[in-house]
Amino acid sequence: MKILVCISNVPDTTTKIKFTSDGKQFDATGVQWIINPWDELALTRALELKETTGGLIENITVINVGTKDTEITIRKALSVGADHAVRIDAIPTDAYAVASEIAKYVETHPFDLILTGIESSDYNGNAVGGMLAELLNIPSVSSVSSIEINEGKLIITREIDGGKQILDVPTPLVAIVQKGIAKEPRIPSMRGIMAARTKVIEVVNPINVAPLTDYILFELPQPKGKCKMIPADQLDELIHVLHQEIKAI
């Protein structure tokens, strides 16, 4: 079985978001870039499955659509144990363009299981996985919180409102994963970092797909009014607020 993990290069989740003064672009000054947290959990689960299924999984490849700057993030994926990495050399303009580039690669390099995170923590598109599956004309399961392999078959858990469903879905498949899929992302070991240095990142020329959408203006929300403090021994005041203003009781 071959697994492809799609990874997005995003600002660290603690980043204070800023835009250029004309509001046209994200201001990347001083930003630390990381593997999108859900993509990182997807990769973690892929590695766990490879280790626990005794040779069933022959290869884990990570793929990213991005410029050379993203290679630091790609190297991290290699240093925690991905076997191979692919970078499609294009600026990721929108989800459709990204999904189209990955679909083109997968058409000539088939995988049994393709993993994507449920969204990227920057543009929150929730889009690449579903689009990729549609472009490849294969099934997709979203909100996946667990993947097990039993006798060579995938057992997928999907979160639904108020519960979960255990599903049996044939491969090839796109699984769009969320919280729960793996517990903690892995920290690269010194040995892993050294090994990753010698691995080659395959750079692929893009097909240059026109985006379906453009971001034209970014804005930060209005700052919130000051918090009104209520002394802990005057909870009747809070009861009054809950009743009169918030109308919660």
Binding site: D94, A95, Y96, A99, I118, E119, N124, G125, N126, A127, V128, G129, G130, M131, L132, A133, E134, L135, S140, S142, S143, E159, I160, D161, I176, L212, T213
Partner: peptide, 24 residues
């Protein structure tokens, strides 16, 4: 809706129709 099901379907439909997706 921007919920589990809505997100799962909207992305596929966008690619099928080649129609721009704006989520959230």
């Amino acid at each position: 809706a921007h919920n589990n099901t809505g997100k799962a379907l909207a992305s596929r439909l966008s690619a099928k129709l080649k129609a721009g997706l704006v989520s959230g």
